[in-house]
Design a binder for these strands. Structure first.
Lengths: 205, 205
DNA sequence: ATTAAATTGTTAATTTATAAACAAAAAGAT
DNA sequence: ATCTTTTTGTTTATAAATTAACAATTTAAT
């Protein structure tokens, strides 16, 4: 099946977050305009995204929450799940690790890496912490597909290279250093400073 | 002066990051295609962004790094700077705080807020930690324009309301809960799960 | 039953964002 | 000096994303 537009994928992920919350509150159906309001989007856009993923609602009743969660899962989740490794267990790495535990069963953080001997060899949040030097073996053995990089900027490049050589398929880079990856590795970069500078720019007249 | 497109503002912020790095390495001029390569963009886009902000380069030599940093500063930085408050000093809040210290003199983290008595009343990374109950006074007294929310999801809504009532102009929300803000408050939301789910989706065939 | 109101699904239009194209100018080579 | 190459700046074209428009359908009300 052909890939959906990146923007639609992002929104589906956001919708699912809200839908799960709705389900936990016992909500059975949801209208496109309700979902839209949560995410500051238009109802048309929500319906269009839903159409693109091949799901259908019930006219005059909206979308069945539980079914739609499953439908998004069929798009976003890989059959047996994907394994994730986090490199750099400082504050940011730990925040991400905590964030994930128990939230997305199909995205499992199965290993974390650091250089600090106070951390390596121990478990943090139920996940074993390995030394970064063991990335090649551990990525192979634990079948890790995706890497999250939260190391200090000066180690960003070599960390990425290590992960790529170990056979990783996707990288989420939180360092301030832009990376280069081969064509067959998907790279996503996020810089908090940019986000805040954007807020700062638009938060004034 | 009219506002630039949001995408251009984001890229200018990213360019500046790289330019500062170039300057620190003694680089005097940079070509549009060099800057483009760093950020996985096209040279045309870089030149267009530069044009939109009203800056000019030197033909056959490129852009003067130092001058361009200043030019971006005239766009992104507010005259006397803007003050920032972080609410929630868990791992994520601390990571952001560390990230910022000494990096952007015009974006000053002047206060952090928490409920934990082990943290309130003390200094963390050189910034005083206040109890969240004192947000109204501290925001007023310290002239805080921008708020970063890194509290547990169940407190996201009330935190935002508190900041808004205290007169904040912009919010960067890192919680998993979508917020609602009045028209005159700029809101930016970021969810790590969405980023990783996007990577997971595109990192497979 | 009939009508009115509400909501989905989809096509068409619009807007925004990106890329292509190319003139103009500067540097260097001949 | 003249020509060639390189790179900027800007316009025009293309592509992507969003919004508008509206038919189809269902529910509820009269």
């Amino acid at each position: 099946m052909g890939k959906l537009p990146a923007k639609t994928v992002e929104r589906l992920s956001e919708y699912r977050r809200t839908l799960i919350n709705c389900m936990n509150h016992g909500k059975e159906y949801i209208y496109s305009h309700e979902l839209a309001q949560f995410h500051h989007k238009t109802a048309v856009q929500v319906r269009r995204d839903i159409m693109l993923m091949g799901f259908s609602g019930v006219q005059r009743k909206g979308y069945k929450v539980k079914e739609m969660i499953d439908a998004i899962g069929r798009i976003l989740d890989y059959k047996n799940g994907q394994n994730v490794g986090i490199v750099g267990i400082g504050h940011l790495g730990t925040a991400i690790l905590q964030y994930f535990t128990g939230k997305r069963p199909k995205l499992r953080v199965v290993a974390i890496f650091d250089v600090d001997e106070k951390k390596t060899g121990r478990e943090i949040n139920g996940v074993h912490c390995y030394h970064v030097d063991t990335i090649p073996e551990v990525v192979e053995r634990e079948n890790i597909d995706l890497g999250i990089i939260t190391v200090p900027p000066e180690f960003a490049k070599e960390t990425a290279e290590g992960l790529i050589n170990a056979g990783i398929r996707g990288i989420l880079n939180f360092t301030t250093v832009p990376l280069n990856v081969p064509e067959d590795v998907y790279l996503e970069e996020y810089d908090m400073i940019t986000s805040l500078e954007k807020v700062a720019y638009f938060a004034r007249g």
